[in-house]
Every structure is written in structure tokens, then in C-alpha cells.
Design a protein around this nucleic acid. Structure first.
Lengths: 361, 361
DNA sequence: CGGCCTTTAGAAACCGGTTACTTTAACTGG
DNA sequence: CCAGTTAAAGTAACCGGTTTCTAAAGGCCG
């Protein structure tokens, strides 16, 4: 059965395309009660669905939004996607998913495709904070843009939904640094990400306040994958190997810029039989679902991923509707969740008031 | 800067739209060397990108494919999505993601939207195996369809990529049933899924072969979530509670139809201090990334998720290209991966040859 | 040198909707 | 009874491409 067009419907009803179109769009004026009813009946009988493509060409609105993310396989992103998707679909929009694999070239290519496709807006969780040439393309084409999770270009210049990375990292670092004689390793993500810069700053701030000697903080960089985190720690262990049979660790606390790397670190530690949290304490970032499930459950800085996704979708819908909210950036507050990979701390009055709450069970 | 159109380009080059179109589409014939070069130069200078919408309307091909999945937050699906996405983008197609949350009505609604949008094909990981009315809609509209992971309607009737659920479940059940005095609980998914039926049949087959008395197998149903798996086991524990302080378990082996439910089961068991695998052995299904990471690492039936996604994308691309492969269904073989939630078995000659391999580390 | 073939390029229809503008008819009020 | 309004419905242009058909020009051959 060939696909019906509005002309077919018009033919059957003995009216013009224009009239059918008016009924389709539920326009109050311009169609008589009787005619409208007749057309409506034919619409219902045939189950006619107008072509979204034709409508898009004619109206310039596609009712779809592009979502660009680095890596759907990283368990943090599905939550983000889920939040975006739910909000969009509720508003009658659909989602074009662009998974860049952290590849900046692929990201740029995807943005080009989204422009061609005529999406009404783009939510961008970019893999680079430096080069914003592809983002300019969007702006030149006047397509609303919401940055998600990672800043591109000047922070306040564009709409965006972020988490307070500095705060979150500081909380985590402070907690670790309160340990007796702490020697901290910070496993950061790629250094060209705004995120990485902010988190590092948070760690440094906490470290400065601790007054510990400079060599007690080491910062290493990894690629946000489990294997990257594992190798980062394995390398450190290797480097401290003194040739004798006895293993010596050069650190007793590790903070990873995401949970996946934290799990990798734990894996490396477990591999050589290091006890967590007794010998080394570990904190991650994100709070993916499995952080709770791991044994021991992972202490981590929780980000409200689903809410962030939903918020970015809300924002893009507003922009598409033509609104231009004063408040350009929405900053969410992360929360340190204490679980099993960190040890108990003596309740001390001197400690900063903490947002993190101990979870039970 | 207003968006350029093909007419603008034609104007600048002093030629007609038709000629520009021929250059755009790299048609060999119909344009002189010199003219072609001049137009090409203007194209490059302006960075002109033709509107995909207009092209779609005109040619009837959208170069996009819809992917319908039940739940992106379930860690099994991102892998599937990733496999699909990589294959599609490599072929110049883009991906419209439809997350149904297991809601059949939402699934049907999404299929309607995909038809309107004029996607060239649909990959459907359905939440129902019964009602295929919405799938018929696709077929009426002559839109190629590939079923993924779950059968809808008669198995051989439609193109699809599946895993041999019967085999996988049988492997797992056999392994568990080899335990001394085994009392097995099978936590199945929703009973209206083809998957669930097949896996159950696999379990029943293994059980029948074991010769154990009927009451040694219990089948319960849950909703494929972690919480569902947890509750299923918690309920069984509750039911076996004899009022005294001493806990009695009515089973010593559990096989869950996915890893998430297996983790839920482990959680319920841990909650009352049951030792795994000593007191109860547990096997999951899927082999999500965290199965390896959990402590103890989860024994599970591994599905090649990424490959399945890629295979389904390959198949839909073939169908879009007009091919109609003889072989309608592609059946992947799952593999039992023995890890820490099952105990060692005495190597016995009588045992079925096993595909599963013991992993190290 | 004229007719025919081929190449180049343009004109126009088409894809399936939306919408500004126009026509027709009925209704209102002076 | 007729001018003025208003509601209903149609006509046609338009969105931005693709494609078929056709016209013009250039080259080759007899």
C-alpha cells in the first residue's frame, strides 16, 4: 500500500490540501464544523500521518534535537541520555544520538550532520574544551545550543548545565587528606577538558589548605576508561618497586576523576593484594549505579546525571521556543557519598561542614 | 548569516540549480570541466551544505535509522547501541534513539514517529513478543525492519539478530545443577518475552536431564531491574523464614535472566550474610562490564552485545540497499563465563563439554 | 558546408506539506 | 434592498533540493 499524502486525503474528502492541512493542525478558524468532521473522519479511518520531512521543510522546524556525547559505553552517560530522552519525548521531540568516542574530529563531523539534518537544537557534551570552531558553526546557523557537563570556550558565554567540579573535587580531596600522613594520587582525565582543569584546581585547593609537603600530591592523567585507571595505578606501583620482594606503596589515597578509573585503580590494587581502605583509600567521581554494588562499595562524588540530562533538555526546549533566560548556566552541586573504599574519620570539630552523607546498607 | 541554499550558489555561479545539484552529487555526466571547477570552488569557499531535509523529501531517503530499545540505563544496552552507532555512522547514516522504558505503548508511539520521520529502517529491540500490531505498521509502510535480541511474532518471519537463549540458559542451569543436592531458583524476566520463554525452556531442559525431583526447581519472575532481582530473592528468603532465629534457605543456586537481577539477588543474599558461592551459587546473563569487576566477580552467560548491535546495523543497511538475504535470522552463541559466584566443580568425565572458559585475574 | 550525434546546461515538474492571499457566499444592519 | 462584514474554502507560492525533458552549441563526417 503506497503511502497516503495530504493530496489523497483532500481528493477523498473533495476539498483542497489547504483545508486538510488546517484540520491536521487543529487550527480553530477557517474550516466549517461539518467539513472538519468529514475530514477528521477520513483522517481517522485511513490513519493518515503527515510526512514529518515535508512539514519540516515547509516550517523549518524538525522537532528533533541532537545529543552529542563522548561514550555511551561509560555507565555515566546512559543516565544523562535517559534524562534528556524522557524530557524531549514528553515535549514531542525526538533524539538524534551522536556518540563520538571522545574523537574530536568525529564530534565536528557529527555537528555538521546535525546542521544538515536541521535539528532544532543541540545538546553537546563535548570531548574538547579548547577548539570551538565546530561549535561556531552551530551558532552561525542560529541553532540553539546547550553545553552539558563540559564547558567549551568561555564559561559564561554559552548556555550550559554543569556540575561544580571544583567543589566536588575539593570535598573528595579534603576527605582523603584528613587521613593520617596522607600521600595522595589524583588520577585526572585528559588535561584539555574544562572538567579536568576544574577538578584539579579543587584538589590543589584542598591540598594547599592541608599544609602537607608538596611531594604528598601526585597528579597523573588517564583517558577516563577503566583500563586507563588501572594502568595509572599499576605504573605507580611499578615505579615504587625497589627490587626487593617487599612491596612499597608511594601513596595511601587515590582520587579518580571518574568511577570507571576508580574501579580500574581498585583492580590494580587488588591485583597485588593491597587492602582497601586500610592501606589505600579510594574515591571516584560520578556515582554510577555499580558504585553502590561493588565490594567494597565505592566512595564517590555523586553527580545527578539524570537531572542534568533533564535540565539540559528543558533548557534547549526553552531556547527553541525562543526564550533567552538570563541565567545562562545551571550549576549542580555534587555530593560526596561515603562508602566502603574510605575509612572512618574521627569526628573532629575542625572539619569543614560536609554535604556528603553516610549511606546505610 | 542566513543559511545558503542551492539557489544562492547557482546565482553566484551564474548557473541553474540543476547544474549545482549535479556537482553536489558528483554525477559524472552533464557538467563541463570548467563549470564544474568553478562551482566546486564556490561550494568550498562558502562551505555550503545542502539541506538533508529537502534532499530527503525529494529522494525519499533520509539516511537515518531508528533504534528502539527498552532501557538505556540497563548497562547491557549501551553496548548494543554502541555497536549499532559505529556501523551506521561509518555508512553515513545517523541514529534516532528511542528508549521505551519497557512501555509497550511508548514503543508503539515511537514507531509511529519513526514512520512519520521517514527513517530508512528500524532496528527494534522490543518490549513485547506478543502484540505485533505496531510492527505491522512498519511493514505496511515498507520500511525495512530488523529485530534485535527479542523475537516479535513468528521467529522465522522477520529479519533479526538473536542469541541462542535456550543454549545459554541450559549451560548455566547445567552448571548449577551439577552442585551437590542442588535446589535451583530461576529468576526469569517478564513471561511475555520470547527471551524469557526460551531461557526458561533451556533451564527446564537441563533440569529434566538432571533427574532431580520437581520441587528442586523454582521459577520466579521479575522485571529485569536490580531491585526486581533483589526483591525476588528477598521474598524467597522471607517465605522460608520459620520464625526461629535461625535462617533457613530453601535454595542453594540461583540463575538470573540478566546480570542486573543477579546483582540484586547477590545484594539480598549479602544482606542476610549468606556466603556466595559457598552457600548459594549465582549465575547471571549478559556479561555487563561490571560482572568482571564485582566482588566476587559474577559468573554469567556472556552475550556479544556490541557484535549483535553491529550485525543488526549491517543487516538493516543491506535491507535498505534492497538486498534480501536468504538467511533471515542471525543466531549468536552465548558463552558461560565462570567467575567467582560459582564454586569449583570436580572435573568429571561425565560432564557435558563446556564452551565456557575459566577467566583468570 | 550541412546534417547528425553528443555534450552541456537550463527549464520545469515534483516530493508533501504550510500559509498568505483571494474568491465566494452568507449574514448583518441601516 | 444593498453595502459591509465575516466565515469557509480554494489557489498558488514556497520550503530546498532532485530529476526528467528539452534546447542550444560544438564536433565529426560525408
Amino acid at each position: 500500500m503506497a503511502k497516503l499524502t495530504i493530496t489523497d486525503i483532500a481528493g477523498r474528502a473533495g476539498v483542497s490540501k489547504a483545508t486538510v492541512s488546517r484540520v491536521l493542525n487543529k487550527q480553530a478558524a477557517g474550516v466549517g464544523r461539518e467539513t472538519r468532521a468529514r475530514i477528521q473522519r477520513i483522517l481517522d479511518e485511513t490513519g493518515f500521518q503527515p510526512s514529518a520531512t515535508a512539514r519540516t521543510l515547509s516550517t523549518g522546524r524538525s522537532h528533533s534535537v541532537g545529543l552529542v556525547i563522548p561514550d555511551i559505553a561509560n555507565p555515566y552517560y546512559p543516565l544523562l541520555v535517559s534524562g534528556v530522552e524522557q524530557t524531549l519525548v514528553a515535549a514531542g521531540y525526538s533524539l538524534v544520538l551522536c556518540n563520538t568516542g571522545g574523537n574530536v574530529a568525529k564530534e565536528a563531523a557529527y555537528i555538521g550532520i546535525l546542521i544538515d539534518k536541521g535539528v532544532d537544537g543541540v545538546i553537546l557534551n563535548s570531548s574538547t574544551s579548547q577548539d570551538d570552531s565546530h561549535v561556531r558553526l552551530l551558532e552561525d546557523a542560529d541553532i540553539p545550543l546547550v553545553l552539558l557537563d563540559r564547558v567549551v570556550g568561555r564559561r559564561a558565554a554559552r548556555y550550559g548545565v554543569f556540575v561544580d567540579n571544583h567543589f566536588g573535587a575539593r570535598q573528595a580531596a579534603e576527605h582523603l587528606l584528613a587521613r593520617q600522613d596522607c600521600a595522595l594520587v589524583f588520577i585526572n582525565g585528559p588535561p584539555d577538558l574544562s572538567q579536568s582543569i576544574e577538578r584539579r584546581a579543587g584538589v590543589e585547593a584542598a591540598f594547599a589548605k592541608s599544609g602537607l609537603p608538596r611531594d604528598r600530591l601526585r597528579v597523573v592523567e588517564a583517558d577516563c576508561t577503566l583500563e586507563g585507571g588501572r594502568r595509572a595505578i599499576a605504573d605507580l606501583i611499578e615505579a615504587a618497586w625497589d627490587g626487593s620482594g617487599k612491596r612499597r606503596l608511594s601513596f595511601n589515597a587515590a582520587f579518580a576523576a571518574n568511577d570507571l578509573m576508580a574501579f580500574g585503580a581498585l583492580r590494580a590494587l587488588r591485583h597485588i593484594g593491597v587492602l582497601v581502605p586500610d592501606e589505600v583509600e579510594v574515591i571516584g567521581f560520578d556515582d554510577v549505579e555499580f558504585a553502590r554494588l561493588a565490594e567494597p562499595p565505592l566512595t564517590t562524588v555523586a553527580q545527578p546525571a539524570m537531572e542534568m540530562g533533564a535540565a539540559s533538555a528543558d533548557l534547549i526546549l526553552q531556547l527553541i521556543a525562543g526564550a533567552r533566560p538570563r541565567q545562562k548556566t545551571l550549576m549542580m552541586t555534587p555530593r560526596l557519598v561515603l562508602r566502603g573504599t574510605t575509612g572512618a574519620r574521627p569526628a573532629s570539630a575542625s572539619e569543614t561542614p560536609r554535604k556528603g552523607a553516610k549511606e546505610h546498607g
